[in-house]
């Protein structure tokens, strides 16, 4: 299978993730959209790594996975603390300041 197929898949995944972030209202689902975008980036790194025949892209993917894990820790901590206060994770209810 050619590299371009993987790249198209990565672009599709990235778009789905971005649309999820923009459209969905549940902050956990929004966050999942972000993770999907990061994984799309990982897939492109791997595909390009194959294209160029070196290990740089695979190395990058490892770093991205570590950083994404750290991001999950921070993000879920924020979402959970907000949920304990408000009993909701909808981003629509998050508009106290614009009054």
């Amino acid at each position: 299978m050619s590299v371009s197929a993987y790249l198209i898949l990565a672009a599709v995944l990235f778009t789905i993730g971005a649309v999820t972030v923009l459209v969905r209202r549940n902050s956990i689902v929004v966050f999942m959209g972000v993770e999907l975008m990061l994984n799309a980036a990982n897939l492109s790194f791997l595909a390009f790594s194959r294209l160029w025949g070196d290990f740089d892209g695979q190395l990058a993917a490892f770093f991205v996975m570590v950083v994404a894990a750290a991001e999950v820790v921070v993000g879920l901590a924020i979402i959970v603390s907000l949920f304990r206060t408000r009993r909701t994770v909808s981003v629509d209810d998050e508009n106290l300041m614009r009054r």
Binding site: G17, S27, F31, L38, A41, E71, M97
Partner: peptide, 28 residues
């Protein structure tokens, strides 16, 4: 403050994802 935190996190992570995807394609 918590609201600011959530907004900053979600939009910041969104921005980082763009940055990373861009980096992947520049590498490509």
């Amino acid at each position: 403050s918590q609201e600011a935190s959530l907004k900053y996190f979600l939009l910041g992570a969104f921005g980082s994802a763009f940055f990373l995807f861009g980096a992947a394609w520049v590498y490509g």
